Structures are given as C-alpha cells and as structure tokens.
Simulated assay, not measured.
Amino acid sequence: MTSPTPSKRPLWTVVAALVLGAAALWGSSRLVWSAQERDAGVRGMILATQTGVDHSGALVPLAILAVAGVAGAVATGGWPRRVLGVVLAVAGLWACWIAVDGVSFGGFPPGTPVWQLFLGRGLALVAGILVLAGGLMSTKHARTMPRLGARYSAPTVKKSARDPDTELWEALSEGEDPSDR
C-alpha cells in the first residue's frame, strides 16, 4: 500500500491554528474575566477584578501545550501524530469549557467594564476552538502531512538495478531478438 503524497497545506494550517490558539490563550489569561464589588472596610466598596489566570490557572499551561503541539505536529507522523491530535483536541475542549464555565450575563456592579469581561472569555473560547480544530486536523491528515526528516528515510519500494547484459540474455531466453531494439 502506498502512502499519499504529502501536502504542506494541512501542516501549515495546523501550525497556524495552534500558534494563534496559544497566543489567544495567553492573551485571555491576562484580561479581566470577572468583577465584583467588595467591602474594603474604611475605603468603602471597591471593584475587585479577576483576570483569566486568577479564574483558572490552566490557561497558560494550555497555551504552552499548544506551542509544544506545533513541534510535535511537525516532527511526528502516523499514529504518534494522531495521538497528539487527540490530546490537542481535548485541550481545546478544556479551554472552551473554562471560557464558558461561570459566565453570567447580568448583575454586574456599577462601573464594571462589561465588554472587557466578555472579551477575555471570548478570546479564550476562540483559542479553544482553534486548538480543537488544529488537533482534529492533525488527527485527520496525519498520513498526508509531511513529517520532519521524511526525505532522508529509506524508500519503501526497493528499485532493482538491472544489468544490461542480463536483460539481453533474458530477452534471448524468451525468444526475442535483442538486436531489434
């Protein structure tokens, strides 16, 4: 069975999705995810904000996993790439779950930058979708994407070198006249 010719387009799509997903996860970890009014004693009521990394400490490790997934997608092939794709797809689903877990659409304290709250979670959701898509695409196209060092591996079909004299004798044995060639 011959393997299909490798195409670089799916590999670059996977790499782009994972890099963009990692950058968006890191960015969303720095943005505000929630805000609450809190009693600060003498100072009165203050607006306490919580960033993405305060909400869930998994955002930055998921971003690092996505970056490591780029190296894995480029370097591996076959079933290791499929396993990596499944791990990345699960990580993308996890990021999506973190983004939507605990979201509220009302009851914000006065002075709350509501658009910032939804921007942080929305960016994490988009990042999770990108990592999920990169993982699924890596799993689907595991055989057709090129892998690192594939051009230096031994060919699967061995070409036999034929001696011209042997070919002439075989032609005579089969009843052909080799001078007619």
Results as ranks from 00 to 15, higher is better:
A66Q: 05
Q116I: 04
G41E: 09
V70K: 04
V83N: 00
R43H: 13
G41L: 10
I64M: 14
A124T: 14
F108I: 03
L59A: 13
L125I: 02
V53P: 02
L119G: 03
L123E: 02
G102I: 12
V60I: 14
R30W: 09
I64N: 10
G78Y: 01
Q116H: 11
T76F: 02
A68I: 06
G78N: 04
G107T: 05
S28Q: 09
D39Y: 15
I64R: 12
W26A: 15
S56E: 06
Q50P: 07
A63I: 07
E37F: 11
G102P: 09
G52L: 09
V86G: 00
G85W: 03
G77C: 06
W94N: 00
R82V: 14
W26S: 12
A63F: 08
I64T: 11
V53T: 14
V42R: 13
V42W: 14
Q36T: 11
L88Q: 00
S56C: 10
L47P: 05
G92S: 07
G77R: 15
G72V: 05
A71I: 14
T76Q: 02
G120M: 10
R81C: 01
L47M: 09
R43S: 11
L88S: 01
G69P: 02
A35Q: 10
A124L: 11
H55S: 15
G57N: 09
F118Y: 15
G120L: 13
A40S: 15
E37A: 13
A91K: 01
C96K: 07
A127D: 01
G77M: 07
G107R: 10
V87C: 00
W115C: 06
T112Q: 00
G41Y: 08
A35G: 04
A91G: 06
A71M: 14
D54V: 12
T51N: 13
D54W: 10
A40W: 13
G77W: 04
T112K: 03
V87H: 01
A71R: 06
M45N: 08
L62H: 06
V74L: 01
G122A: 07
G107E: 04
G78T: 01
L47W: 09
M45W: 08
L93M: 09
L88M: 01
Q36K: 15
A95Y: 04
A127L: 07
S28F: 05
W26T: 10
S34L: 10
S56G: 10
W97M: 03
P80A: 02
D39L: 13
D101E: 09
G69W: 00
W94F: 12
I98E: 05
A99G: 04
V90A: 09
A89D: 02
A95M: 06
R81M: 02
L117T: 00
S28R: 08
A89L: 03
Q116K: 15
T76M: 08
R121S: 05
A40T: 12
P113E: 14
W26K: 07
S104L: 10
W33F: 13
S56D: 15
G57I: 09
L62E: 03
P61W: 15
T51E: 13
A71Q: 06
G92L: 07
D54R: 14
L88A: 01
T76L: 15
W79D: 01
A35F: 04
